[in-house]
Design a protein around this nucleic acid. Structure first.
Length: 717
DNA sequence: TTTTATAGCGTTTTT
DNA sequence: CGCTATAAAA
């Protein structure tokens, strides 16, 4: 049995799969068969009888990855998916906290807030405390709270040196109080609470440490500090002094690729890869460097690009595949024309029998998708945009869920506020303020305040709302989940409301899908409202592509991680866009942008298009730009410029460049203004002292060389 | 209270 | 340009 299991693995993969039970780090390059190694490792451990299904813990970052692993695993072995602990960090922590809610100090039916809920909760808090949200922007405060939680810091452990940070800390504390009162937890709280529970409860810790002898982690480069701490604890690697079984820690199998770390901006800590080797006394580091995905030229380009990064663990992908075709580069005059180019090429490939689903169009930021969508729509090419509004994030779905939440836990203020006046039932701001005052005064939830009748003028309307929820709860008793959902939709008046709305058709369909989702959930899991609500929060869900429709794939580069396509368009390769303006000054930021570009390049199997636009509509105005530095970092021999007249701007010698830069503050890509030619962007410059010449791209007015001293050029930004 | 108008703002994002 | 959030008018 295990013979067929291991068939076709290369020596490194085989070594990784059959490692003895010690901790190891697997550096798995793009397209090197990472997922296969991970699942085969689990299958091998199980089928050789080294461990039972209950002894394995496998952690991923996305639900998609978890599902994929489970699917592949059950293809290799007859397993009961239910007994295996495979899931995302958050999914597993949720599972853990549902089992031990009492020890964790949570209500049995605690609810999970997604990012939007959390943001709303923070805003509400600021309002309740009369804090100026200009001085303490909710966005920033949320970031602060999550950042601290992800470092494992509660308010009492946060450092504060001035008035401002003391206030932040104070607000953090108030936020926690509010969450506790309402029985809700945010994403970071799931992790932090689990971590603290393990840390402080020796019996539980001992139990789980004894149980999970093998822990496997995917995308290890994306773990944050707290996740790493959690892992250490669970694996039995907690700090000295605790009485845990020394020398009996679990075998941690960490798989990652530092070159694909693209989430540092939200707290991922690549340093965990170094720490891991030290803390777990890792002696085995296996590099998976053979790429099974891309043709040689694509790989060479990616390798050359990423070689420009300084902080790397070091790794070079190679392939047995032929070089293939060169990378095709297209420089368009405008974003509009760039989209036209994509359309033309896609049409051609389609004529050649290429399926659209195997072609991806990637961009740095979501705003870029609009022009592309427009062009594709005009050309009647079916396409699908990933990462737009997700199913459980649509307003009608959130409304429906809010009603359901009130059934499970009426003290969920977030939920109550969302729907107390939706559909409109005459409860406005004034009334809500009164309610909130009452609630604050007595330190209770809005629900209780509403029940006590302190609602002033609209007391009748509020009373009817309370009645409505109560009667729904009553009627829902004993119903199956999908029926409960339907009941709520009807009784709450959501169906009527959207039926009356002109644009409500799609929303009605989505609500219908919510019932289906509930039915599916019951089938695959259990008939339990709280579990379903947790599912909705944790798997905001990519609803699956419509089956049977062949569609072009549009997504951000971030969203493309882990995927692969026959052909890939990487669009918008311009300074300021990719790399993005906001990352340019910071070398770390620039390296992350480069890794992002690396991820983009390595998505392609056979064909790779790189495109850029000289002018682009951004925030309602046209911006001019120059080619991304990333294009220069790919060897010219690998590139084939498709347009006629591209002449790379003559590069000034670097010393001259830095002179001119220092003397005049010039920069490639800089926006400038000329009294005659209007706005433009610096493409190149030359000379020094009073003899500096600047080449400027003025868009329609053309590209011109000007003498800086005479030209009355104004440097912007 | 609800609807409508306008000002502001605008990486990347899973959970 | 297109979305969201807040302000003024119905």
């Amino acid at each position: 049995m295990s013979a067929t299991l291991l068939e076709g693995l290369n020596p490194e993969q085989l070594a990784a799969v059959t490692l003895p039970p010690v901790s190891a780090l697997i550096l798995a390059g793009a397209g090197s068969g990472k997922t296969r190694v991970l699942t085969t490792r689990i299958a091998w451990l199980l089928s050789t009888g080294q461990i039972g299904p209950h002894g394995v813990l496998a952690v991923t970052f996305t639900n998609k990855a978890a599902k994929e692993m489970l699917t592949r695993l059950s293809a290799q072995l007859p397993i009961n998916a239910r007994t295996l602990w495979i899931g995302t960090f958050h999914g597993l922590c949720n599972r853990f906290l549902r089992l031990h809610w009492r020890d964790a100090g949570l209500p049995e039916a605690f609810q999970i807030m997604d990012s939007a809920d959390q943001q709303a909760a923070v805003k509400r808090l600021l309002k309740a405390l009369n804090v100026d949200d200009e001085k303490y922007p909710p966005r920033e405060l949320t970031y602060y709270i999550n950042g601290n939680k992800e470092e494992g810091l509660r308010p009492d452990a946060v450092a504060a040196h001035d008035d401002y940070s003391r206030m932040q800390r104070q607000l953090y504390e108030e936020y926690e109080r509010q969450c506790r009162r309402e029985g809700v937890v945010d994403f970071a709280e799931l992790l932090l609470r689990s971590y603290e529970l393990l840390r402080d409860n020796a019996a539980l810790r001992g139990h789980y440490q004894a149980r999970f002898r093998h822990i496997l982690i995917d995308e290890f480069q994306d773990t944050n500090r707290l996740q790493y701490q959690w892992l250490k604890l669970l694996a039995g690697k907690e700090p000295e002094g605790s009485a845990a079984a020394e020398g009996q820690s679990a075998a941690v199998f960490a798989v990652g690729d530092d070159d694909q770390s693209i989430y540092a901006f939200r707290g991922a800590n690549v340093g965990n890869m170094h720490d891991f080797q030290r803390d777990f006394r890792v002696e085995t580091v296996i590099r998976l460097e053979q790429n099974y995905r891309s043709h040689g030229n694509i790989l060479d380009a990616a390798n050359a690009l990423i070689a420009h990064n300084r902080s790397r663990l070091g790794k070079n992908l190679w392939t047995e595949a032929p070089p293939g075709e060169p990378l095709r580069v297209y420089e368009a005059a405008s974003d509009f024309e760039e989209a036209g180019f994509v359309v033309d090429e896609v049409k051609q490939m389609r004529r050649d029998g290429q399926s659209l689903a195997d072609i991806a169009v990637l961009y740095r930021s979501n705003a870029q998708s609009r022009v592309l969508e427009h062009a594709l729509f005009q050309a009647a090419i079916p396409y699908r945009v990933y990462g737009g509004l997700r199913f459980f994030e649509r307003q009608e779905i959130k409304h429906a869920l809010a009603y359901l939440r009130l059934l499970a836990n009426p003290e969920d203020d977030n939920a109550l506020l969302r729907v107390i006046n939706f559909p409109a039932r005459g409860i406005g701001n004034r009334t809500l303020e009164l309610l909130q005052e009452t609630a604050r005064g007595t330190g209770t939830s809005l629900w209780l305040a509403a029940c006590s009748g302190g609602a002033g003028r609209s007391a009748a309307a509020v009373g009817r709302f309370i009645q409505l929820i109560e009667s729904m709860r009553h009627e829902a008793e004993g119903l199956r989940l999908p029926e409960k959902v339907l009941l709520v939709l009807e009784r709450a008046g959501l169906l009527d409301h959207y039926r009356a709305e002109k644009e409500g058709q799609e929303r009605l369909e989505n609500l219908d899908q919510l019932i289906s989702a509930a039915a599916t959930f019951v089938q695959e899991n259990q008939d339990d409202l709280t579990a379903f609500l947790a599912h909705a929060s944790l798997e905001a869900g990519e609803h699956e592509a419509r089956p049977g429709e062949d569609a072009l794939q549009l997504m951000t580069v971030h969203a493309a991680k882990g995927l692969e396509f026959h052909a890939v368009f990487l669009t918008g390769l311009e300074e300021g866009l990719f790399p993005h303006d906001n990352s340019r000054d910071d070398p770390k930021g620039l390296e992350e942008e480069r890794r992002l570009a690396y991820v983009a390049l390595t998505r392609a199997r056979r064909r790779l298009y790189l495109s850029l636009a000289q002018s682009r509509m951004l925030h309602g105005q046209t911006r001019l730009s120059v080619a991304s530095r990333f294009l220069d970092e790919i060897p010219a021999a690998l590139l084939k410029w498709l347009n006629r007249g591209y002449a790379p701007a003559a590069k000034p010698a670097s010393t001259l460049r830095s002179n001119a830069e220092q003397e005049h503050g010039l920069r490639i890509g800089q926006q400038v203004e000329h009294p005659k030619f209007g706005g433009g962007v610096v493409v190149a410059f030359d000379g020094h002292g009073n003899n500096v010449n600047v080449q400027v791209n003025f868009g329609v007015q053309g590209v011109k060389w000007l003498a800086l001293a005479q030209s009355r050029l104004t440097l912007l930004n």
